Simulated scan of single mutants.
Amino acid sequence: MILLDNIHQTYRGPKGPVHALRGVSLHIRAGEVFGVIGRSGAGKSSLVRTINLLNRPSQGTVTVAGRSLTTLNAAGLRAARRDIGMIFQHFNLLTSRTVFDNVALPLELAGLSRQQIQARVNPLLELVGLGHLADRYPAQISGGQKQRVGIARALASQPKVLLSDEATSALDPETTRSILALLQQINRELGLTIVLITHQMQVIKQVAHRLAVMEAGEIVEQGEALKVFSDPQNETTRSLLDDVVPRELPANVLERVRTLLGAPGQPPASLLRLVFAGSESDQPLLSDLVRRFGLDLNIVHGQIDEVQGHPFGTLAVLARGAQEQLTAAVSHLRGAGVQVQEVAHA
């Protein structure tokens, strides 16, 4: 659906050229929600704006729905952009127009009749839950409702692709969840390909099927969301994931573990950090360790969550037993697909 090949983007800066994108290549599949995440200045917004050529890349090609946008003339590009809707962080609504008329604006510019506009706008307002607010003005509705207007407006031209540039960053957590649920519904019911730009892993966790992580204008990691969450390969990814799955145990937990590890007269012990995902979560792995290896297990910390409906989580387990049994247990867990990190040993 979307193919970016060797995209470079260079701007003029006060101290010389600024390289916003450095050789970015991406393949986004039809009908998926694809997340692009990174810190401020990583190049996320520059990237998403090359998809509809709001920013023309300095080098590389952009192909959307089989059309090479970078080779089109002005008229061809205008036509191609009708297949690409976009929603923004700050809504960009016209304050002098009602909710209905804001959604209708792209259709008016396209020359549709009032009857055609009504036939398209009214169902969209119902889809985003604003049918009862069609006659309100932006100043009379909430931030979440304004973003729903923005989504309906982006859908008015019946696009094949929807670009979301930090669309939930200005919203509170509860409203963010409702907007993301709406985007999931749109993806599911309309089969729309959605590209979601964000700096929040919580957003990625809720809606993205696959994701790319950006740093300094480059993609440093990409893959299926569940795989990236459970087995991040890049330090930038691991840092971003700290908001969802902290790598470090809380100080009070570590203090308690130090006391347990230092208890006199006890058999060897290891503090193990286990990361599991998907079907691994349904297996009785800990009770299996007790039966197979005769270990004493103490769960000292844990977190269970979901990524796209798939279980995912971490456990910190204090395991006691003979050293050879501890070693065999770790090998058994890894063979079952669980990631195991030995945090401490005594």
Score class of each variant (00 low, 15 high):
321 G>L: 11
200 Q>W: 01
278 G>H: 09
296 D>A: 13
233 Q>P: 09
43 G>L: 04
77 L>H: 09
30 A>Y: 01
78 R>H: 02
207 V>F: 04
51 I>L: 02
290 V>M: 07
243 D>P: 00
284 P>S: 12
46 S>I: 07
80 A>N: 11
185 Q>H: 13
283 Q>S: 11
12 R>A: 11
121 V>R: 06
194 I>C: 10
336 A>C: 14
335 G>H: 10
152 A>R: 12
259 T>V: 08
168 T>P: 06
72 L>H: 07
337 G>P: 10
229 F>N: 13
40 S>I: 02
77 L>M: 08
87 I>K: 05
263 A>M: 13
214 M>Q: 06
261 L>F: 05
17 P>T: 01
37 I>G: 06
286 L>Q: 05
133 L>V: 02
313 G>M: 07
226 L>K: 04
16 G>Y: 05
25 S>L: 01
228 V>E: 10
162 L>I: 07
153 R>F: 02
37 I>F: 04
283 Q>M: 13
198 T>A: 13
158 Q>E: 14
265 G>P: 07
148 R>P: 05
47 L>E: 13
189 E>N: 08
2 I>C: 04
193 T>P: 02
227 K>V: 15
202 Q>V: 00
8 H>I: 02
73 N>C: 00
283 Q>P: 10
87 I>F: 03
105 L>S: 07
341 Q>T: 15
263 A>D: 02
188 R>C: 03
249 L>Q: 11
204 I>G: 06
231 D>T: 14
135 D>C: 06
318 L>W: 04
324 E>N: 14
173 P>E: 12
181 A>M: 05
238 R>S: 14
178 S>P: 01
214 M>G: 08
217 G>L: 11
84 I>W: 05
168 T>N: 08
298 N>T: 14
322 A>R: 15
212 A>T: 13
74 A>F: 05
29 R>V: 03
136 R>G: 02
188 R>K: 14
163 L>F: 08
23 G>V: 10
50 T>G: 00
319 A>P: 06
155 L>N: 01
298 N>C: 11
237 T>W: 04
95 T>K: 03
111 G>V: 04
209 H>E: 14
318 L>I: 04
324 E>I: 10
337 G>L: 09
